[in-house]
Computed example of a mutant assay.
Amino acid sequence: MGNLWTVLTHAHSLAGPVLMLLYPLYASVMAIESPSKVDDEQWLAYWILYSFLTLVEMLLQPLFEWVTIWYDVKLILAAWLVLPQFKGAAFLYEKLVRERILKRHPKSSSPTSSPNGKPKSKNKFVDFITHKKGEHGAY
């Protein structure tokens, strides 16, 4: 019985990193390589929610130390967010995060046009690096 308990304990402690990091990393890479945008949204939503959960967990660490089942609750939540049968990350993003973002940043201007009416690349970093002198004001 002692060896079985040791194996179960190790499996339980490995379940978190595998479920919350390894599988999502693999699935994110596969999503980038696939032509579909649906899986991209699922995994971007997952990483947003995972980051938020990690931040909350860091801030409330002393409280969570008193909640003995926190790790198990976190595993169940992560499974719901990650598993393709549930698509919990996309669901939570759509219901909670997206509404708040759209309230604060309504889509009043087109992201592909600049204030002077010229077409603008969607990649702001490339625009920043490749801008022409005088285009964004005097230097």
Rank of each mutant, 00 (worst) to 15 (best):
V18C: 08
P84F: 05
L81A: 10
R98N: 09
F64H: 04
L44I: 13
I101G: 01
E41C: 05
L19E: 02
I32M: 14
K124M: 09
V56A: 10
I101Q: 04
P17I: 02
N116Q: 10
W70R: 08
K74E: 07
T112V: 09
R100E: 13
M20H: 11
V7N: 03
I32C: 14
H12Y: 15
L14H: 12
T54S: 14
V73F: 10
L49A: 05
K120V: 01
I48S: 02
S121A: 15
A45F: 06
M1S: 15
P115S: 04
S28P: 01
K74P: 00
R98M: 02
E57W: 08
F128C: 07
W70H: 11
K132L: 12
L22I: 14
L22R: 07
N116P: 06
D72H: 13
S36C: 01
Y71G: 06
K95D: 01
L63R: 04
L21G: 09
P106V: 01
V38C: 00
Q42N: 09
S109V: 09
I69K: 00
L4P: 01
D39E: 13
P17C: 04
P115I: 01
T9P: 00
H136S: 03
M58N: 12
S13T: 15
A89F: 05
G134Q: 08
Q61G: 00
E99I: 11
K122M: 15
S108P: 00
